Simulated assay, not measured.
Amino acid sequence: MPNPFTDALITEFRANDGRLSGPFAGGRMLLLTTTGRRSGRPHTAIIAYYPDRDRVLVVGSAGGSDKHPDWYLNLLANPEVTVETGLFTYQADAVPLEGTERDEVFTRLVEANAGWGEYQAGTTRAIPVIALTQKQIGPPRGGGSFADLLIRIHTAFRRELALIREEVATSGTAGVGAQLRVNCLTLCQGLHHHHTGESDGIFPALLQQHPELSDEITALIAEHDQLAVHLEELEKLLQTPQPNLLPEVDRIVAVLTAHLDHEEAALLAFL
């Protein structure tokens, strides 16, 4: 049945590259489209997700209900799903985690958000955790120029940096949780792939058309090398408990943000 509240969230999500307002502002959300197990029609749900390196994790909590959500029952019948992140849309395989892996991952997610544990305590069913593994990615949503795409990609990185910074700020001085470390590793991996694509693809193409950018692009490539070092520092910082972690995270986030700003100032007019 149509749900006006959910439909409004989906519309807002698609109109704003995955950004939402109100109680969902700043959260990690995606759109998951499954095939109705009885109707055969597409069914889209908006769900919180967790990064997990080369896959993402979603939880079939249904708000702690004793019944599994419809989207979960749909993917059991047909595990081929469509994922929308706000920037990209891709096909994915949906695999429910089982046994020890499910329990270990669920414990990690409860550490990140105690609400999952409260939901589990209120129902006799085992709340499922599903891994969504990308099969094939399509072009960015919305089209636009290379300049538009760069801004949208950078905006997504800035949002994730802000989320990680906030998670560190609220974790206290006893160390950060396992899921926050995974979030950081996934961000670092994404930034590395982005910078590699720029250095190997976009920058050489720009130089062919605009040789006057030689000094600027040389400086940006040098920044990429330095950022790789900073990303390694960030990973190490999150590995072990230590006091006063936030100032170091703030320093690294500031360096990364300054690089994104520099790229935009140097390249947008030419893209």
Rank of each mutant, 00 (worst) to 15 (best):
M1T: 08
M1N: 01
P2N: 07
P2E: 07
P4N: 03
P4M: 01
E12Q: 14
F13E: 06
R14G: 11
A15S: 14
L20E: 03
L20M: 05
G27K: 01
R28Q: 05
R28F: 04
L31E: 07
T35C: 10
G36H: 14
S39A: 13
S39T: 15
P42F: 14
P42E: 12
I46C: 12
A48F: 10
Y50M: 03
Y50D: 10
Y50H: 14
R53I: 14
V58P: 11
G60E: 06
A62M: 05
G64E: 07
G64Y: 11
D66N: 08
D66Q: 07
Y72M: 03
L73S: 11
L75A: 08
L76V: 13
N78R: 12
P79F: 13
P79L: 10
E84T: 11
F88M: 00
Q91N: 10
D93M: 12
V95I: 15
P96M: 09
L97K: 08
E98A: 14
R102G: 05
R102E: 11
E104P: 02
V105F: 10
R108F: 02
V110W: 08
A112C: 02
A112Q: 09
N113E: 08
N113H: 11
G115P: 03
W116D: 06
Q120A: 15
I130D: 08
T133D: 02
R141P: 01
G142A: 09
S145Y: 09
F146A: 04
F146C: 00
I151D: 04
I153G: 00
T155M: 01
A156V: 02
R159A: 11
R159F: 05
L163P: 00
A169M: 02
G172A: 07
T173V: 10
T186F: 05
G190P: 02
H193I: 05
H195D: 15
G197E: 03
G197S: 03
D200T: 13
G201T: 15
P204F: 11
A205N: 08
L207R: 15
L207W: 14
H210C: 10
H210V: 13
E212W: 05
D215V: 11
A219P: 06
I221P: 02
A222E: 15
D225Y: 06
H230A: 12
H230S: 12
L231Q: 10
E233R: 14
K236I: 09
L238W: 09
Q239E: 15
P241R: 02
Q242A: 14
P247Q: 04
D250L: 06
V253R: 02
V253F: 00
V253P: 01
V255Q: 02
V255C: 00
H259W: 00
A266I: 13
A266V: 15
A266Y: 10
A266D: 08
A269L: 13
F270Y: 15
L271E: 06
L271N: 07
